[in-house]
Design a binder for these strands. Sequence first.
DNA 1: TGCGAAAATGATAGCGAGTCTCATAACTGC
DNA 2: GCAGTTATGAGACTCGCTATCATTTTCGCA
Lengths: 149, 149
Amino acid sequence: MSFAPTSSTWAATTIDALRGAGFRTGGARRAVIELLARQTCCLSAQEIWDGLRRESRPVGIASVYRVLEVLADLKLVQRLDVGGGVARYEPMLPSGDHHHHLVCDDCGKVEAFSDEPLEDALRDLGDQAGYDVDAHDVVLRGSCGDCRV
Amino acid sequence: MSFAPTSSTWAATTIDALRGAGFRTGGARRAVIELLARQTCCLSAQEIWDGLRRESRPVGIASVYRVLEVLADLKLVQRLDVGGGVARYEPMLPSGDHHHHLVCDDCGKVEAFSDEPLEDALRDLGDQAGYDVDAHDVVLRGSCGDCRV
DNA sequence: TGCGAAAATGATAGCGAGTCTCATAACTGC
DNA sequence: GCAGTTATGAGACTCGCTATCATTTTCGCA
């Protein structure tokens, strides 16, 4: 169980990828990307909006969603649902490394984990089913060590 | 890859479990349970509401959500997110058998699959992380055979 | 460096899933 | 049957997210 936190190069890579795809780079886009680059796990759009506002870099909520949509389409961020009707987003590293999530139903905490055998099993399954799988989410729910006491 | 469809005994078991937990059995509750029992894969609350309406068994949308909430709390149905901001529900069989989902991002189709090695891997992971896991969702996204042509 | 076309941004209205409230209807034990 | 309690349904409401559109910003090009 391990996960290398997002390096600061992700921001640069992402902005390059956007320009390569013909997008211009406005302030909102850069602000969202730079905030995401500093995170180690998933954030909701609201959390991103709050974070930017707290750093005195206010951005329209619509822009936050737009940036996230573009980034998700280009597979530069992963969008995932951990329940509660709120989508969460996190950087996708160019290395292809990624992780999945443990969600505590009691306190709402979200933790990351990664596991290579699990990835292998998932890859095989997609092939087997005739699907061209380009993303997979694994969410384990339960009570974390703290809440179970 | 296999999945035994929900048997009609699930409805009876579920109603018994509700009564055992001190709930009464009104018409809406029974209608939702009986409709769910006939499904082989997950349904959204709206689809359940539409289905009941189509069988001339109209039920308030609030009741549908209430029934689903109670059933999910008692672990008689599994609630899962396959994206799109809509929760889906499906019966949890007493045998403990369950399955996961392949979602086609193009046509929205949802298919079920199950895989024992995957279950083992997930069980091990939960233990390893110190979590008391009581549910897990695995969602593979991509293009299905039909859409990829 | 300055211009203009085209894209990005932000405020706000709109949409839809899901929840809350409360008066009414139905169930259950007696 | 009756009374007490629970379930139900209509509709108002919340909130995450999207669509719209006027304004601002970016960037190729002279």
